[in-house]
Amino acid sequence: MIRDITLGQYIPGRSLIHRMDPRVKIALTFVFIVFLFIASNFEGLLMMVALMFLILFLSGVPLSQYFRSLKAILFIVLFTGVLNLFYGGGRVVWRCPFFPAMQITDGGIGNAVFISIRIVSLILFSSVLTFTTSPTELTDALERLMKPLKVFHVKVHEIAMMMTIALRFVPTLLEETDKIMSAQKARGADLESGGVMQRIRALVPILIPLFVSSFRRAYDLAMAMECRCYHGGEGRTKMKQLHMTGLDAAAVACTAVFCGAVIFCAAYFPASLR
């Protein structure tokens, strides 16, 4: 349910991937995505897919979970796949009898398969990150990864704090929305019938009280934070320290090998996209 959003898509576990430093996980996910686009032929892509299956296996998350996250993007994969069928060079395989301009070539089929694999891998790689890392770990890691941006006066601590608070208040505000909806229904508000415009208009009496109470909560929270000596990121410590271990070094080494292989493939085999 949406109520469990605090945990996001996180699936608790103790696998090798779960135990990795979240900073390394974020960085490596980024690298994977970049290399998915560097791989320009099926040989290189095969390397990335092999790496992906290795990671999926190590994550200990049931495959059914991954399928579920793919279902959400099925439409996009089909759409780009079908579209790519018609854009490609090479031998014509099929020509539309009504519009001769619409034709499927063997190059187009290759492109469609290639791009579909690319998108699916992209989603699976990022799913591994969100499935094995809790939102608090993610915000924590992001705060530390973004620290160098302080040079450019980016308020890194404040952004991370806002993310933490936002995550914390999502379930609270959902509960509140439920309550307000019930209260308005009890007064005869009709939220379920009518056209789109009418339904949007029906949301106003829910959004306004929600807004007002959010501000009241914000005021209370700010006071509670001050009572607990909050004074910005200056001089703040963290209870949970992030540590990189041998596990993270191994993961980086493993990634380097596969990425090296992708570069090798890109150099020695012809590009598959036509």
């Binding site: 933490t164 209370d220 509670a224």
Partner: peptide, 11 residues
């Protein structure tokens, strides 16, 4: 403070 929901910062 009075309202426990509004005092907790982390999830």
């Amino acid at each position: 403070l009075q309202n426990p929901d509004n005092q907790l910062v982390a999830s």
